[in-house]
Amino acid sequence: MAIAAALSRALDSDLWWSFRRSPVTMLSALVALVCILGAALAPWLAPHDPFDLATLNLGDAFKPPAWSAEGDALYPLGTDDQGRDMLSAIMYGARVSLLVGISAVVFSTVVGVAVGLLAGYLGGWADGLLMRIADIQLTFPSILIALLVDGVVRAALPRELHDRIALFVVIFAIGISAWPQFARTVRGSTLVERNKEYVLAARVIGISQLRIMLTHVLPNVVGPVLVIATLGLSSAIITEATLSFLGVGVPPTQPSLGTLIRIGNDFLFSGEWWITIFPGAALIAMVLSVNLLGDWLRDALNPRLR
């Protein structure tokens, strides 16, 4: 009953209405859904296990896609230099890309929202200090920050240990490079909300600052955060792919889409285009659809554009 009621309320909402009116958004949602499901369910859906060395057959290396003359129906998108099925490799690769992207966004959201709330609500020197740090960081391109963090960790840790935590290092590096955007947006909305009378009413009865921030201000500033998080997801995926393409991202034992593109890049000019084009196309589809969803969300949540 309650679920049915919630569902009918959701279907009746303005968000759903604007979603249904935008074919581009519906298509993006579909593509994003396919990407996410394909990635999340890779171990069950993928036709092969690209990491199972026992099933690899070097004799199957460099097979072109199934629809070309020398293609093999066993490998719909062809195989790479080691005889790995490209479709499976892409699904597993997308899994890594999404895992890193989502984790990084969650990380930067948590840091950015916390910093923005504190700076906006407390004001004064805390605000000045936190926002100057954000300003300074914003003057550097995020890829540079991520490279820097990755480089420092690589130099500081023994190789063996680094390999084990490499995934977390990448997530941290990407996440830390994106928090200022969240902090700035949240600070701006917080400045508006904290002077509203419902916050004053809570202060009059003596509710603690932390509690006011979490129960009153936070729920009223999350709208824009959702938008930046969605747009941030696509740029996090791109950053991860760039790092992996440069060979400093995720460990080669867990190839992401970026790693696949880098590997395929070596064969692009020798005619084995599918090894790099298909992971590239998958990356574009994923990033574009998420980005379009973010754009739609931004417009749909903006009361002035409605």
Binding site: K196, E197, Y198, L200, A201, V204, I205, G206, H216, P219, N220
Partner: peptide, 19 residues
């Protein structure tokens, strides 16, 4: 003591948390 004092505000649209 704090309980004994309360305030009513001007703007009925801003004085209640919309969420």
């Amino acid at each position: 003591q704090r309980r004994r004092m309360q305030m009513i505000f001007q703007d009925p649209y801003a004085s209640l948390n919309p969420r």
